[in-house]
C-alpha cells in the first residue's frame, strides 16, 4: 500500500505538467512518427521507428526519472523525507513506476507500430523483450544520473546536453555499418547503441555486434548503475558527500 501511495503521489504530482506531458508524450513523438513514415516511403519503417522508440524514452522517461531523483536527493528534501515513514529507495522506485505508467501508452503504441510495419513478420515480436530490456536499462540510467547529479538545477542544464550527446553518438536515425570503423567503435561505447542492437536484429536488420554481447553489456552496466544508486539511496548519511 505504501508503494501505491507513492505512485499516486507522483501521478498527482504530474497534474500541473499536463500540457508538457501531452506535448512530449503524444504530440511530438507521434508527429515525428508521421514524418518518419513519410520520409521513408518504400523502406522498412521499423528501423527508424525503433530509433524513435529509444529516442522518445531517452528524451522523456530518462529525463523525468533523472530530474525527479535528483530532486528527491537534494539536501532539503532528504531532510524532510528523513522523518517520513518511507525509505528513499521506495520513493525512487515509486517515481520510476509512476513515470513508466505515464510513458507506457506512448512506448506501447510506437512499439506496436514498429512491429506492425516490420518486414520481419512474426519474428519482429521478439523485439518486445529487447525493448523491455532497453526500458529497464534506461530506467536505471535515469536513477543513476539523478543520484549522481543530486541537484535539480544542475540537472536542468546537464541532462538535455547528455541526452543530445547520447542520441547523436548512436545509430538512432542513421545506419552505422557504412560509417568509418573508428566512428563505429565510438558508437559502440554508447549504451544506446546496445539498446538498439537488442531490438533491431529481430526486425530483420544486421546487428552491429553480437546481440548477446549487447545484452550482457546492458545487464552488467545497468546492474552497476542500479547498485550505485541503491547504495547511495540506502545510505542514511547521504549528506556527507556534499561537503
Amino acid at each position: 500500500m505504501k508503494f501505491w501511495n507513492v505512485i499516486l503521489l507522483e501521478l498527482r504530482g504530474m497534474r500541473v505538467y499536463k500540457v508538457f506531458l501531452l506535448i512530449n508524450l503524444v504530440v511530438l513523438p507521434f508527429s515525428y512518427a508521421v514524418v518518419l513514415l513519410l520520409a521513408g516511403a518504400g523502406q522498412d519503417h521499423s528501423y527508424l521507428l525503433s530509433g524513435l522508440v529509444v529516442a522518445s524514452l531517452v528524451g522523456t522517461f530518462v529525463g523525468l526519472v533523472a530530474h525527479r531523483v535528483s530532486n528527491l536527493v537534494q539536501p532539503e528534501v532528504l531532510e524532510l523525507y528523513a522523518v517520513l515513514p518511507a525509505r528513499m529507495e521506495l520513493m525512487v522506485v515509486g517515481a520510476v513506476a509512476a513515470y513508466a505508467l505515464i510513458v507506457f501508452p506512448q512506448v506501447g503504441a510506437l512499439t506496436g507500430l514498429m512491429i506492425g510495419l516490420s518486414q520481419a513478420g512474426k519474428e519482429a515480436l521478439l523485439a518486445v523483450p529487447g525493448t523491455f530490456l532497453g526500458f529497464l536499462f534506461l530506467a536505471l540510467l535515469g536513477v543513476f544520473l539523478g543520484t549522481l547529479i543530486r541537484n535539480p538545477y544542475k540537472a536542468q542544464g546537464l541532462f538535455p546536453l547528455l541526452t543530445w550527446i547520447l542520441l547523436l553518438a548512436a545509430p538512432v536515425y542513421y545506419q552505422a555499418e557504412s560509417l568509418p570503423r573508428a566512428y563505429v567503435m565510438l558508437v559502440l561505447l554508447n549504451p544506446l547503441t546496445h539498446v538498439l542492437n537488442v531490438i533491431r536484429p529481430h526486425l530483420g536488420f544486421t546487428p552491429l555486434l553480437d546481440i548477446r554481447i549487447s545484452i550482457g553489456l546492458l545487464v552488467v552496466v545497468g546492474g552497476l548503475m542500479g547498485l550505485y544508486a541503491l547504495r547511495s539511496l540506502r545510505d542514511p548519511k547521504m549528506l556527507e558527500r556534499f561537503f
Binding site: L9, R12, G13, M14, E76, L80, V83
Partner: peptide, 11 residues
C-alpha cells in the same frame, strides 16, 4: 521535522 526551506508539492 519542519524544515527551514518552504518546500511545496506544487500540484
Amino acid at each position: 521535522y519542519v524544515p527551514q526551506a518552504p518546500l511545496t508539492y506544487p500540484s
